[in-house]
Amino acid sequence: MKNDTPKVFKSIFALFVVAIFMIGLFYAFVSMPKGWGVNVNNRVSRLYILKNVRTATRLLDSGKFFAKGMKPLRAEVPYKPIKFKKTANLEDGAANVVTSIVVDYRGFDTLGEVTVLFLAASGVMMLLFGKRVKPKRKKTEPSLIMYVGTRIAFAVIFLFGIYIFVHGHLTPGGGFPGGAVIASGILGLFLGRNGYTPNHAGLKVFESLSGIAFVIIGLIGLFSVKSFLANFLPTGIIGNLYSAGFISLIYIAIGMKVGSELAAVVDSMIGDTKEEWS
């Protein structure tokens, strides 16, 4: 398709849009209160924990906080203020605070992110679906050095990926980077040998089972603690491998899922397929 718009106008228009955007962003940051960040006095924790929770329980019992005509919510579940310092120094026992935010406080978001990745992989596979065909042009056969080297490196990379997601609650890292590291090891295997194909059915089963495991952990929380994705395991002593409740379980599930998904994406991208519509 031919486009007759002169290039200069396009560039000017693009610059105009970008300029408006930048001016807005600049204005937004300039007009921000001093300190360049969250106003600490208004922080959530201060507002709700230090001032209000004690009185909140009392007021909730008297029903004053509800609008007229509204039934009190959670009437059957009494309002419990959160008990901090249940574990040594954090409320969910993870030495890595990022992890406890990602998996415990905002575990639902993480479930959503995993789903996004799963759907992206599914979309790629759906688009590239078809009968596998042999490539017409012959590919270069990688040398023996690559073949042996990638296989040895794969073992180390795989181990490292597992380390990253098993220690997610202790050291920086977690399910997503661990899975990505594993997938890049599998990518190395693809580079090392022509016609390398992982076990498709195995990858699919792995992917499904780990996703199911994640949701089932959430459902166990729903039926034992009455809240979806609640931490239902004891939090243990901070810094131990067996601590932080269900965080490491979820990270193992995420790591396996991300690893197998990305590997499947790479596989379906590399393989040559022919579309077929019955």
Partner: peptide, 27 residues
Amino acid sequence: QAPDVAITEAAIGAGLSTAIFVIALKK
């Protein structure tokens, strides 16, 4: 001081997505 994000970005952004882009380009 965000090592979590750094590891993820290095593994996915610099490693895997580049490879996938190259494969897609080849295709």
